[in-house]
């Protein structure tokens, strides 16, 4: 019984006009706390938190860097989950999610790389180090760009979205393999040249703003993706009756 109720909800939520209708209040519910949490987290991190005893003020970039890196991975994983849903249950909404989330995830990945590189300059004395985590992040960016490029290249929106769904699933199986292989390679080559900071457990005054920023950015990610989905949805369904009726009414 519970299952059938869930499936009913699943299909109802999957219905495109219904989703389009509820997406506005959901987006609002994500945007307001998201912006507030992210703003407080970044402000508290940049101004209120104490400086790091080793890195001084340079460490403060983590309030952007860590949420971006988290979202780069969260974004790709969620795309793969949506990919499975799209391939197995042929839910259009899941296809649209992948297409909408890819550029936003790619942006956060780029942000994580850029902030990591800026952070690396004072810490390692160079903009780029073939550190295991930075390298995996770079390859993750290429995986994102692959999905985006594939979507742009294929003309039929349905085929393009389904191809992207499969590519994200294949990609996500590879992400941990890539990560461990890069780590393996890294210990083989670099080893002692990088001084790893032996960080003590984070001070709570530093940690709370970070958590707040991470949660806030995640909500913002959801908000932006939802708007992207609305645009995709309107474009793909532009010939359908419900979009026509809605445009009539709004006139």
């Amino acid at each position: 019984m519970a299952k059938s109720a869930f499936m009913r909800w699943f299909h109802r939520f999957g219905s495109l006009p219904y989703f389009y209708g509820v997406s506005v209040p959901i987006a609002r519910a994500l945007a307001v706390p998201g912006v507030l949490l992210a703003a407080w987290g970044v402000f508290a991190g940049l101004v209120l938190a104490p400086a790091d005893y080793q890195q001084g003020d340079a460490f403060r970039i983590i309030y952007i860097h860590v949420p971006s890196a988290w979202l780069s991975m969260f974004g790709y994983t969620s795309m793969a989950v949506a990919g499975v849903v799209a391939l197995v249950w042929r839910l259009k909404l899941a296809e649209i999610y992948i297409v909408a989330a890819a550029p936003i995830g790619a942006s956060f990945t780029f942000l994580a790389l850029a902030t990591g590189s800026i952070w690396g300059k004072p810490m390692w004395g160079t903009w780029w180090v073939w550190d295991a985590r930075l390298t995996s992040e770079l390859i993750l960016l290429f995986l994102y760009l692959g999905v985006i490029a594939l979507h742009n290249a294929i003309e039929s929106p349905r085929t393009a979205a389904r191809a992207c769904a499969l590519l994200s699933v294949v990609g996500v199986i590879n992400v941990p393999i890539i990560h461990y292989s890069v780590e393996w390679w890294n210990t083989l080559h670099q080893g002692p040249t990088i001084t790893r900071f032996d960080r003590p457990a984070m001070d709570l005054d530093m940690l709370w703003p970070l958590l707040s920023a991470a949660l806030g950015f995640t909500l913002i990610f959801g908000w932006l993706t939802l708007w992207g989905m609305r645009v995709q949805l309107l474009w793909r369904e532009r010939r359908s009756r419900w979009v026509g009726r809605m445009l009539e009414n709004s006139r």
Binding site: I139, F142, L145, G146, A149, N174, S181, W184, W185
Partner: peptide, 19 residues
């Protein structure tokens, strides 16, 4: 496009093969 799709997936083979 094909190179963009598959080269990132080739990273593990490249690393272990060259390793």
């Amino acid at each position: 496009l094909l190179s963009l799709l598959i080269f990132p997936l080739y990273v593990p083979v490249l690393i272990f093969g060259a390793g």
